[in-house]
């Protein structure tokens, strides 16, 4: 994404908590970085449906969610290979090495552990750009 200086990032925020989705959306909007559309999904299944129909550059996903977990979502994205340029970020209260290793194996670029300060989102977005 280093050549995308003039491009804005379209985000997909996946979390079963409406509060977390709103907080992440706000942090992205206040980052001062070029952010385009921000789509929201409450679980992995909703996220997959959005990925099929929307242009998304970066995915921020929780792990523990009903219907389809974040790890299942990352696994499907990895297996389908339909979104090879999709930047993948995990945001989870589960910071165990086992989960981090699992996410790494599914081509996750960053793993943000809760609790985090909103500045962490800006820093990750800046790195993605």
């Amino acid at each position: 994404m280093s050549t995308a200086a003039a491009k804005s990032l379209n985000l997909l925020v996946v979390d079963d908590s409406a509060m977390m989705r709103a907080m992440l959306t706000r942090a992205a909007r206040l980052s001062g970085l070029p952010i385009g559309a921000i789509h929201e999904a409450a679980n992995g299944q909703e996220a997959l449906a959005l990925l099929e129909t929307q242009s998304v550059d970066a995915l921020f996903t929780d792990l523990n969610m009903p219907v389809m977990t974040g790890m299942e979502l990352l696994r499907i994205i990895d297996e389908r290979n339909s979104w090879p340029g999709l930047l993948r970020v995990v945001i989870s209260a589960d910071g165990s090495a086992a989960k981090r290793d699992g996410a790494d194996a599914l081509n996750t670029l960053r793993y943000i552990e809760k609790p985090f300060k909103p500045e962490a989102i800006r820093d990750v977005l800046a790195a993605l750009l």
Partner: peptide, 12 residues
């Protein structure tokens, strides 16, 4: 999550 992560660290 933070208590379990900080306490267990490596376990799932």
């Amino acid at each position: 999550g933070a208590v379990l992560t900080r306490g267990e660290q490596t376990t799932q």
